[in-house]
């Protein structure tokens, strides 16, 4: 579904990703772990199409097409979803209105019929119920005045409504207490599907107790330095990221 090959990305003149390669198949959950500054969020942003991220080499192929040439909205319509590390507060834009506009724009781009307000409301209520999210959230402006946990749950709620094919979760666990973390993980697990892939970016192993990954990758210095199964995450938990520095020193010697 997703194939990243030798990706090099510069941000504000500085090279952040230095030859990252990764393949994700439909139905799989991949965890990307790594120390701060390794380029984890850059990966999420460049996949979603944020401006200011300059790809200097490499390629990203998503469902057989070159993802990097698409505008952010076209990527969304093609099924790419980024759950933001820091969801933006947008005062004055109603959450329901925004989500309906987003869903219908995606459907229109895919040549599907748009949902009228009744159909949309039905869909939304169903998702709210499944995710145990209060419908009070619908009446508020996008993320405005939301607590950290509410913002993250709103991301998962949006994901549930938009039903992407490739969901990238950028440190969705950061700033969450254990109860909120479980709710978010439950939301993700409900969406796991043979046709859907997840890339879960996280600093801590903790989230992976609840969202069990198929593959774990260590991102350091702008590239994947090690890949493995779930045990790799546990090793990182025990040993921290310090061994990466030793490994690098050894490599240099």
């Amino acid at each position: 579904m997703l194939k990243i090959d030798n990706l090099h990305v510069r941000v504000a003149g500085r090279e952040i990703l230095k030859g990252l390669s990764l393949e994700v198949a439909a139905g799989e959950v991949h965890a990307i772990m790594g120390p701060n500054g390794a380029g984890k969020s850059t990966l999420g942003n460049v996949l979603a199409g944020r401006e200011g991220y300059e790809v200097t080499a490499g390629s990203v192929t998503y469902q057989g097409q070159d993802l990097l040439t698409l505008a952010p909205e076209a990527r969304a319509a093609a099924g790419v979803f980024l759950a933001f590390q820091y969801p933006v507060e947008i005062p004055g834009v109603n959450n329901t209105y925004f989500l309906r506009a987003a869903l219908n724009a995606q459907r229109k781009a895919r040549g599907e019929a748009e949902l009228d307000s009744m159909q949309f409301l039905k869909l939304v209520r169903e998702k709210l119920r499944v995710l145990h999210v209060s419908d009070e959230l619908l009446h508020r402006a996008v993320n405005e005045g939301f607590s950290g946990g509410e913002k993250k749950r709103n991301e998962i709620f949006q994901m549930a409504v938009l039903e992407p094919k490739l969901a990238i979760l950028d440190e969705t666990d950061s700033g969450l207490d254990i109860d909120a973390l479980k709710l978010v993980a439950e939301g993700v697990n409900r969406l796991r599907d043979p046709a859907r892939a997840f890339v879960v970016i996280t600093h801590y192993q903790r989230l992976l107790d609840y969202i069990v990954p198929d593959r774990v990758h260590v991102l350091a210095e702008g590239r994947i330095v090690q890949s493995g199964d779930r045990d790799l995450a546990l090793k990182l938990e025990q040993q921290g990221y310090a061994w990466l520095a030793e490994r690098k020193l050894a490599g240099a010697a």
Binding site: E51, P72, E73, A76, L82, P87, V88
Partner: peptide, 9 residues
């Protein structure tokens, strides 16, 4: 970017 990333042109 937030709005566009959700599919809004």
């Amino acid at each position: 970017f937030y709005l566009r990333s959700r599919g809004v042109p």
